[in-house]
């Protein structure tokens, strides 16, 4: 893990992404919003890995996409290298995306089946006009394939000729092609078998060390996130409920949701697992169209008090090593 100098590569301030819901076939009326991301603030230090965890529908992927400006922002600011990019237009973003890339979850649908590996990995190089001549283009692709552990002689093959793990390597090579500083990893190992997962996680760690990359690592698997991240942010229904160093979050979780999430993950050792405290949550995540008032977690929270349904908690510093949590009852 490369050392960082405390420089913020990404600053997200009060980010909101709402998706409007329309009704009616001809005269469309707006009837509401899916509040996918609702007032999220965090930063990512240069060279670190920030893990973003939460259950489906919590807005973690939307947050990742919003940073790359793949969604229109409803509100808030995104600073990349100190530069406010929230109002950038298409051409400005195109230049900027050389610095930020994404790796997708599904290695089957994220690669065009009609393109060869050479064209898939080389496309960003062509788009950003980064090669001097066809020979240089091929050399760059060959080097990228080597870096991700694929044989450059495979570059004339099509995606269907590769296994899931190999395809994910192709996706990583494509992201690396423009030498970005930030890579948003959107559930990069969730679709892979466990033994292959480890290969890809190790590869991502090696690449980070080699190229000084910064990762926003989005996943629902807490064990994976804890393994790869320096800091972890936990999201619930469009808001960050807790953000802390990886060890702090695990040993000293402040938010009841984080505690429940951690205890829901069984560990592969029956003796140790039986010794852990079990905290079972009732119900399911409510709809982000009508999130509960006050603290969005209060209907499921085992520690909720009446005032939790009234006031929205804000992220507060717990006063302990950059550990922030959004719970009315923290510090009690």
């Amino acid at each position: 893990m490369s050392e960082n100098n405390g420089k913020h590569l990404i600053d997200v301030k009060d980010l909101s992404v709402h998706f409007p819901i329309y009704t009616g076939a001809i005269f469309k009326r707006k009837v509401g919003d899916v509040k996918a991301v609702d007032g999220v603030s965090f930063h990512i230090l240069s060279g670190e890995t920030l893990g973003l965890v939460g259950e489906s529908g919590c807005g973690k992927t939307t947050t990742g996409h919003a940073i790359l400006r793949l969604h229109e922002l409803t509100g808030g600011q995104i600073l990349f290298n100190g530069e406010d990019i929230s109002a950038y237009g298409g051409s400005q973003m195109r230049v900027l995306r050389r610095g930020m890339q994404i790796i997708y979850q599904d290695p089957f649908s994220s690669l065009n089946p009609r393109m060869t590996v050479l064209d898939i990995v080389g496309e960003p190089i062509a788009v950003h006009k980064m090669s001097r001549n066809p020979k240089d283009y091929q050399d760059q692709v060959a080097e990228l394939l080597q870096v991700v552990g694929l044989n450059p002689s495979m570059s004339s093959r099509y995606p269907h000729e590769f296994s899931g793990g190999q395809r994910q390597r192709i996706g990583i090579a494509r992201a690396l092609a423009v030498k970005p500083s930030l890579i948003v990893c959107d559930e990069p190992v969730s679709a892979l078998d466990v033994s292959i997962q480890a290969q890809i996680i190790n590869l991502l760690e090696d690449l980070q060390e080699k190229f000084g990359l910064t990762y926003l690592f989005i996943a629902h698997d807490l064990a994976v996130v804890r393994h790869i991240s320096n800091r972890i942010a936990v999201m619930y229904l469009g808001s960050i409920v807790e953000i802390a160093d990886r060890l702090d979050l695990y040993h000293n979780p402040q938010h009841p949701y984080t505690r429940a999430l951690l205890s829901a993950v069984p560990i592969p050792n029956p003796t140790l697992d039986a010794q852990r405290k079990q905290l079972m949550l009732e119900g399911e995540v409510p709809s982000p169209v009508n999130p509960p008032p006050g603290c969005k977690f209060h209907p499921r929270c085992p520690e909720a008090k009446p005032f939790c349904a009234e006031q929205i908690p804000v992220l507060k510093d717990t006063g302990h090593r950059n550990h922030w949590t959004a719970c009315h009852r923290s510090g009690e």
């Binding site: 466990v194 033994s195 997962q197 480890a198 190790n202 760690e205 804890r226 393994h227």
Partner: peptide, 25 residues
């Protein structure tokens, strides 16, 4: 053994490298 070594453990503090099973099934 290989399966166990290749999954990150949520109760593991030390940042040890995962040991994947090399190759394909």
């Amino acid at each position: 053994l290989g399966l166990m070594a290749s999954v990150p453990k949520i109760d593991q503090d030390v940042k040890a490298k995962l040991v994947p099973i090399e190759g394909q099934p």
